[in-house]
Amino acid sequence: MEISVNVAGANAPISPAAQPHAVEIDALSFSYKERRALDNLSFVIERGEIFGLLGPNGSGKTTLFKILSTLLPLQSGNASILGHSLRSDTRALRRRIGVVFQHPSIDLKLTVVENLMHHGHLFGIRGEQLRQRSTAMLGWFGLSERRHDLVETLSGGLQRRVELAQAFLHEPELMILDEPSTGLDPAARREFLDYIDRLRSEAGVTMVLTTHHMEEAERCDRIGILNDGRLVALDSPARLKAQVGGDVVVIRAKNLAALRDQLLLKMRASPVTVSGCLRVERPRGHEFVRDVVERFGDQIESITFGKPTLEDVFIHLTGHGFYGTRQEDQ
C-alpha cells in the first residue's frame, strides 16, 4: 500500500531551497529550577533524515524530546520545527508532527480501531476520511486482523505498531519518538525499526528519535550525542566511529591501577578506566594485544579488542561509561 505525504505543505509548492529545515535549534537551554538539563544546544535536522539523539539517562534527551513535542515551553534560545516556532506557533505545528511516547499513549482498554478513531477526532479527522485513514494504517502496519481486539491483549511489539499507526494517522511530516523500542525483544525491535525505515523511505517522513540503545542509534542517518545537557558530537554513526583511533582494546585485571601505570610507562598507552576495565584506543590493536599479553600476561584476566562501537565513541568523547555511574569511572 502506498502512502503519500505532501511534504511541501498543502497549498503553495515551495522550492526545496526555500523550505525550512525539519528542525532548527539555536542556543537552546532549559533548567528545572536549579538543575540545568539542556545547555546551549544548536543544531539542524534535515528533512527526510532519521536522526537519533543518543545519550545516557539524565543527559537531557527526554527534556529535548518534550520541548520538540510541544510539551515543555521554551526558556532560552530558539527552536523551530518545519518552520513553526516552538515559542509561538505550537498549535499549527501539532498538526504536522506525530509523537510516539516511551510509555504507551494508546488506551489499553480500547480496541485498535477505537484508539485510531479517538486520535483522528483529536486531529479533526472524522467520517469517511477517518475510515479510509484507519484502514490504510491498519493495512500498513499489519494490524487489520486485530482491529477489533482490545489493545491490552496484543503483544508488546504489536502495541508499539498501534502506537506508530496512531501517531502516523494524521499524516505528519515529521515524527518525534522517545526511546521507541524500549521494552521490546530484539526481534520486535528490529521489526519496529524496519517500520521507521519504511515511513521515511516510502512516505518521506523525517524521524527524530531519542535512544540509549546502540542498535537503534546505528540505524540512524546521523546522531547527536548528548552528555550532561550538551551536544558533544553530531555526525553519521560511521564517521563518529572513525573518530576513535583505530581499534579499542579492553583489559580486565586484578589490579587495575598498577597495570594502568605500567601500560602508561612501558607501552606509552593512555588507558582510561571505564566500568572496571582499562580501555585503550590503538591503531593495529592486535599487535598491542600481543605485546601486552607477552609482557603483563600474568596480571590480566581477559583482554579483547574490536572495531569501535558507538558506545566507544561516547567513552572517547566523554571519558566515562555510557551505562555506569560517573563515580565508578575515575
Binding site: 510539551l71 498538526r95 509523537v99 511516547f101 510509555h103 504507551p104 499513549s105 486520535h119 483529536l122 486531529f123
Partner: peptide, 14 residues
C-alpha cells in the same frame, strides 16, 4: 498525563 492516553491528547491540536 505522564504515562498514558493523555500524553497523546496533550500534543494534539486541542
Amino acid at each position: 498525563r505522564r504515562e498514558g492516553f493523555l500524553q497523546g491528547v496533550l500534543v494534539a491540536p486541542i
